[in-house]
Write a protein that binds this DNA or RNA. Structure first.
Lengths: 413, 413
DNA sequence: CTAAATTTCTCGACTGTCGAGAAAAAAATC
DNA sequence: GATTTTTTTCTCGACAGTCGAGAAATTTAG
């Protein structure tokens, strides 16, 4: 059953609309807000006045008048309205970033994760410590931090910030909400890394191509394989999801995967899997935990000079990816695929297998080969995705807390 | 970018809420409407008055007063507000039903589809003819038909009523909107058959289990294999989709499928495929167009009495289904699977393979075996799904045409 | 016939959006 | 320098929508 609607909800939605226009286009004047949101000038006045009173946005400094007529006054987020901490967990390090409400980076540091003592307990301890440190360095009080946005590779719960499975901690689950609840009033969200990449790409795509954007998949190649899908619904919202692509079954009873199952896509297309094929190690060998990328570079170099066994490694990886992608396309609509992650450096060796793996399927025969694109810089996209997702959730929360606005208004009278 | 909100939209949404409560629970009194929708009594008064004025709902006959106090007056849809034609295309026949706005069946007939002359042209001609006939028999004018809801097996376009591929017409596409536009002012919608089954099951599930329903997959077994997925979003709406499951790749380069590709799930689990395995016919043999179910019954009987080759046919079909389902679960969340269609009569022979095919995968190892349920009566679900989908779209359209309401109000003054 | 119970309807208060026009403020013009 | 033009922002009144409270309607119980 759908929820009822009311005039307050209208205000909430339209306020959120104003904030999202500000996010998308930077500081905007009254008139521009009215243009972007299609709201009437009068409505924009009321909403901006409310938001200003609630200390969420502020009028920017008078800018140099650029034309004639009354000069514009720009609205922008109040940077001190609240803060966001972004935590990017990767296999060898954890990056912590402190960001203000306007999306500007204030502080950042990276902590190496020792390979040996990789228990969940010690990781959580260092997480707690680092989070304390990052607010201390900027002399912020904890309750000014509105959200902690965490990302990792692996399988993330759909509704709660729980890491179900990860290449780093395996089946040792981490419930970040439970871990941080007592120390941090902030909202905790967790996202699969490639999900965030997809989110960032979706935003870019919409800005670029306007309204013909429908859906897009991001495929991240590396030690593990990630997939993120972003789709635009009828009302213009973006739905993002992170399928468990790397561990989708490729060949029943096939090569042993890091996850303990057999025949996963990752067991053919992950870095360790390509190494395994190249060295002709039996497929049921327990996979190496970490593969120095230099190793793979050597294999790639050999393959590029005609080494058959090494070519085969990349070809099999490509086939696994192509077959898997064809299955994804069977279950969704046709969409462009953006390939990223450290593995794109072997794109020239993988592409043939990928295309062959795609070509055999019914969907591709019907609708043609999907558009394949390559983007090298994954890290920037991950961070962008964090900001997209976190700040837009914060905006919605902030707007929902209408009570505080009313409070302030009452005090003013 | 999201659309702006306004007070009219609030009214639209809440009117739709009232109509949907009426759909879900049958005729309701003022108080009950207020309870179900959580709208205040005053609001319900205004909305029902508007809808009554617009001749969309009506006050029912005074019912026998059941308690003391002022007796309730029940609101219900005006049956003559508009009509819906439901067209169910199956491999050997097409069923036409005429339904009024309250969802009551008025007329129904079935036309056999001759197997030999199965061109799109002759099919469209007989469709046109049958549609004309069904309104003529009830002496309805065509513009009272608000919607024609069509279903077929096969691949349906996501946004337009275009049949992209079907087991009946192959790659000969049918654009139902284009075909019927000149003769029918009605809105034309087309849905995959199993999508509608999923929709009906989703509705049932929500009514039964209340709010803990998250998602559900319907799997239809028969000559071809269909899958429908229904998911509840955060706001309580249902999203339904019909993946191209039957033609998802099972084994690269595997058995030849009716669609012309190789290795589709259907090429292992469709009726013709099971027959092929049972008779040990080479996998690249062009599949039989139609398989009399008595043939398969014989094979099943033999399998149940220990016939190894015949057992293998069902086992391989089960494996294909199980592997495919495991891939679906990898790409979505865990959800119960409801199996239906004529193939459920062989469920006892298939289940072992299905479970084995599921068991090997990462998701199932992680989250456990999904709940499997069997429902025999598929036809009823298909029709229910048609009504669900079509009538709720009609409700939304009717409510959106607020202009007419205003018009009528002006005339009344 | 009156009181109690129950449902429906109505009224005033409040919130929200919108269009039009007033007010503000800078550049252009005389 | 005063006036006009242009552009932007603000304000006011009209209108649409929801809500709570209580009045009105209508039946049963006693």
């Amino acid at each position: 059953m759908l929820a009822k609607s009311s005039t307050e909800l209208v205000r909430q939605r339209n306020s959120a609309l104003v904030l999202s226009a500000l996010r998308r286009h930077g500081p905007l004047a009254h008139t521009e807000l009215s243009d972007f949101t299609k709201l009437s000038s009068a409505t924009v006045s009321v909403i901006t006045a409310d938001l200003e009173r609630a200390q969420i946005i502020e009028k920017a400094e008078q800018q140099a008048a650029s034309g004639r007529g009354r000069p514009r006054v720009l609205f922008s987020q109040r940077r001190d309205c609240g803060y966001l901490i972004v935590v990017v967990i990767s296999s060898d390090a954890v990056q912590y970033s402190l960001v203000d409400y306007a999306g500007r980076l204030i502080d950042r540091f990276t902590e190496d994760r020792p390979q040996e003592v990789s228990g969940v307990g010690s990781f959580v301890a260092s997480l707690r410590d680092a989070l304390s440190r990052i607010v201390a360095r900027s002399q912020l009080s904890r309750d000014k931090v509105l959200m902690i946005s965490i990302s990792s590779k692996g399988l993330v719960d759909a509704s709660e910030p729980v890491l179900r499975w990860s290449p780093i901690f395996g089946r040792d689950e981490i419930d970040f909400a439970a871990v941080l609840r007592d120390e941090w009033p902030a909202k905790i969200i967790l996202g699969n890394e490639t999900l965030l990449v997809a989110s960032a790409l979706g935003r870019q795509e919409e800005n670029r191509k306007g309204f013909d954007f429908r859906a897009l998949a991001a495929l991240s190649l590396g030690h593990s394989i990630g997939l993120g899908i972003v789709r635009r619904d009828d009302e213009g919202g973006h739905h993002i999801s992170a399928p468990n692509f790397g561990h989708m079954m490729h060949v029943p009873g096939g090569g042993l995967c890091r996850c303990g199952a057999r025949g996963c896509i990752e067991a053919y297309a992950g870095f360790y899997a390509m190494l395994r094929t190249a060295f002709d190690v039996p497929l049921d060998t327990i996979p190496a935990k970490f593969v120095p990328i230099a190793e793979l570079d050597k294999i790639a170099a050999s393959a590029r000079h005609g080494g058959r066994r090494n070519q085969l490694a990349f070809r099999q990886a490509g086939l696994a990816l192509g077959n898997g992608l064809s299955r994804v396309l069977s279950l969704h609509e046709r969409m462009p695929i953006v390939i990223t992650g450290p593995g794109v450096r072997y794109y020239d060796l993988l592409i043939e297998g990928i295309q062959e793996g795609l070509a055999e399927s019914h969907v591709v025969r019907m609708e043609g080969m999907p558009e394949l694109r390559v983007i090298v810089d994954e890290q920037t996209l991950v961070f962008e995705g964090h900001l997209n997702r976190a700040l837009s959730i914060i905006d919605n929360d902030v707007v929902r807390r209408g009570a505080s606005v009313v409070e302030l208004r009452d005090q003013a009278v």
